[in-house]
Design a protein around this nucleic acid. Sequence first.
DNA 1: CATCGAAATGTAAGCGCTTTCAATAAATCA
DNA 2: TGATTTATTGAAAGCGCTTACATTTCGATG
Lengths: 366, 366
Amino acid sequence: MSNENNSSKKRRNVTIMDVAQASGLSCATVSRVLSGYEFVKETTRQRVMDAVEQLGYVVNLPARSLAGGHSQIIGLLVPNLDNGYVGTIAQGIDQELARANYDSVLYTSHRHPGKESFYVITIANGLTEGLLLVAPQVVPTYLDALREQNFPYVLIDQADATENSSIVDASNWQGAYEATRYLIQLGHTQIAFITGELIVRSATDRLAGYKAALKDHDIPINDDLIFEGHFQQEDGYEITKGILERADIQPTAIFASNDLSAFGAMDAIREHGLKIPDDISILGFDDVPQASIVYPKLTTVRQPLEQMGKIAAKILLEQIEDPSRPPQRVTLATQLVIRDSCGPYPPQEGETKPLKQTGGSLLRTN
Amino acid sequence: MSNENNSSKKRRNVTIMDVAQASGLSCATVSRVLSGYEFVKETTRQRVMDAVEQLGYVVNLPARSLAGGHSQIIGLLVPNLDNGYVGTIAQGIDQELARANYDSVLYTSHRHPGKESFYVITIANGLTEGLLLVAPQVVPTYLDALREQNFPYVLIDQADATENSSIVDASNWQGAYEATRYLIQLGHTQIAFITGELIVRSATDRLAGYKAALKDHDIPINDDLIFEGHFQQEDGYEITKGILERADIQPTAIFASNDLSAFGAMDAIREHGLKIPDDISILGFDDVPQASIVYPKLTTVRQPLEQMGKIAAKILLEQIEDPSRPPQRVTLATQLVIRDSCGPYPPQEGETKPLKQTGGSLLRTN
DNA sequence: CATCGAAATGTAAGCGCTTTCAATAAATCA
DNA sequence: TGATTTATTGAAAGCGCTTACATTTCGATG
């Protein structure tokens, strides 16, 4: 009685051996049953399952993983969780994984500045069978290591300079182009642009799309209207505040490289006593959940984030199943989502609602 | 050349043995160096580290874990990621863990309805040394199992019926009480209340706080003004829509049990052509990041989510270090954050800004 | 009925690491 | 200087699982 289950030491778990013993079989057979091996007699399977049930056996993942089995777990490395962006992607990933009975384990990378590489390798070297990298912010120096180890991984929303990875992203250039064109068609010519971090591919693509649209419509590109931000709300706020205080430029619309900075811009504008979209139009990028919560609802370019997550997961799963598959790249179309934050210029009397568009990949939603 | 590193098969990782060989030491010594054992000669340590460096050795977590070592990893089980709520808590957790050089691995539970128990046990049986449960939505039937295994865990924002767990939560009752009092002091007497899921402790506490405040101010509790929701934006929208369409009740303020449903309510109100706070006041609970993004900025009760995460992590770490510690419960104070969504009743002419409050734990912010 | 291949199960060798326990080297003391 | 600690290392036994290989069972074939 005193040496059974008392002290706080050494909790002994039920192992495969215990199940084997209880069912009068070998541990190998138990293992086979547990991992769904084909050739096991039905009665045997039943015996094992009964014992499992009765003993309350639970698999020990590290052991399984060590022994070379399938952990059915993939790693998901994200920069942070404080905006809807990552959450939405994760949602899609989760859905797809669930279908394959896989689980995901999420790591945040922002903790190890400069050590991402080490971190990633550790993950790859561990429990997981594959890796999904949502890494808009870092230039991955560790991809080589992963490739060398032949470890399956998929990049989400990040181009790999070596063109050697599976990648899922969105048509950033096109999205920015169409959004800019929309503003132009509304009559705007003085369109300020708030960039993201320009080391990030998606950021430069968006900037390029913006410039291309201006050019195609014979609107000169004015570098004074382009401001470098970091995809943060704070940036959007500060930059916009700066814009409004300057006398030399008078943009009638601001196109922010992501929703977060668009929110910041909205704050600054309201604080300055101006009305959106009557006095100035705002356009974002991403279509995070908040975009339809803010007031006025934000007109923005939708990245199919959930869809991106799903597809990335799917590709990874395929890659795990057959590691010899060549890398795939999927670029999903973005879509202009017209809500209430953009108006015509010059403003129409009594009409503050945005014009309905035709053609292009537009979408009118709430 | 042809049998070195060619095929896609069997990636052999660098192991502790390789390092041992390279440095001319035993694997035991290498292990000691790697896990920071005290009594190792400095020169030896250096030899090992050099070899590690040179070979690019990376620890194999499953192996370490299997062998009984410290994985330095705790599990974080959350219902989902699609609202700022969880993200903010995770942020705090992460900060605290970083200090102790621990990592967190995040699992989402929504995938396994009815199997949470199994899921949790698997986690506990695996890689992690402890578990943080953000579980406002589920009544955990698995706590017994965890306790029995003597596995360290901390509940966040969830009361445990058995009073036997470490718990970190916020003073929901008090927060709701003070918020309601604030509305009353603004002159409101017809205050609608949108609840959360009433199986959840925090939801019932908030409801109770609301009722208590009414009672203390001699305002009759009208069950027709209390609506059962599920902490979702959709609920807030539908319920509020219903409220506005009814003729028999005319609340001048709506107190939603969380920010998300408050956002829904705001949508419905705007859709109905009313203005906030002039025509009706809205009050939320949580203070998620979006609360200060929406327009008008939401007056709400702040749960110190990040702080909660930090403290929970801290307690868990202590518990891991010394499993014999008794369970701790920490309840953090909530705080009324006055922004722009509540106005006086009857509305003052020319004054739509909220009154500045004195006394109580109020806070004026942006 | 002997024979053979597939099916079903068992045996045992690790996976990479930690951790006793034992052995050796270095340091201290009488 | 020899005895006694104490610091430092090594040898080897697992942790719980998978899996190649060996063995046994069994229905079917000729």
